[in-house]
């Protein structure tokens, strides 16, 4: 790995100017230490999220879980997907999709009470009641 150091320097040197001219070098090899650091950070966060699941944190749990997952996702996007060194247009494109996802989920949740009974197969337990047999056998399905 003799050229790892020179390419490390390259990656940093080119990080600022993403728009080189046509025949120039536009590759920015990610330094190995950065890839490994991100990988181990992701592993640590995975252990953390498994560890926190052992405790009953109530409503805080889903918030904490999603927070850790979002930090992990951010690390993957920023470093593994190299978005920090990418064109700003690409960053806008992918981040806008996340905004639309949050709009989608948000609006669906806003009136979720309105179609609450359409969400599951047997909201009133009708099938379950009808299926209670007089015989010795109990139907475990609806």
């Amino acid at each position: 790995m003799a050229n790892s150091h020179s390419s490390t320097a390259d990656a940093h040197g080119h990080a600022g100017d993403a728009h080189g001219h046509g025949d120039g070098e536009f590759a920015h090899p990610a330094p190995i230490w950065m890839l490994l650091a991100v990988f181990f950070a992701l592993l640590v966060l995975t252990f953390l999220t498994v560890f926190q699941a052992r405790f009953d944190l109530g409503d805080l749990e889903i918030v904490l879980t999603l927070f850790i997952a979002t930090v992990k996702a951010g690390l993957v996007i920023a470093f593994f997907m190299h978005l920090l060194w990418d064109k700003p247009l690409n960053a806008i494109v992918i981040l806008s999709s996340l905004i639309f996802v949050s709009l989608f989920l948000g609006f669906c949740l806003m009136d979720a009470k309105g179609y609450r009974n359409n969400l599951i197969m047997d909201p009133n337990g009708d099938l379950l009641e009808k299926s209670k047999p007089a015989s010795q056998l109990v139907k475990t399905s609806n």
Binding site: N3, S7, A27, A30, L35, L36, V38, F80
Partner: peptide
């Protein structure tokens, strides 16, 4: 994911 990111680096070099 680590090996894939490393593969991109190897391709560049």
């Amino acid at each position: 994911s680590l090996t894939m990111a490393w593969a991109v680096r190897a391709a560049q070099l």
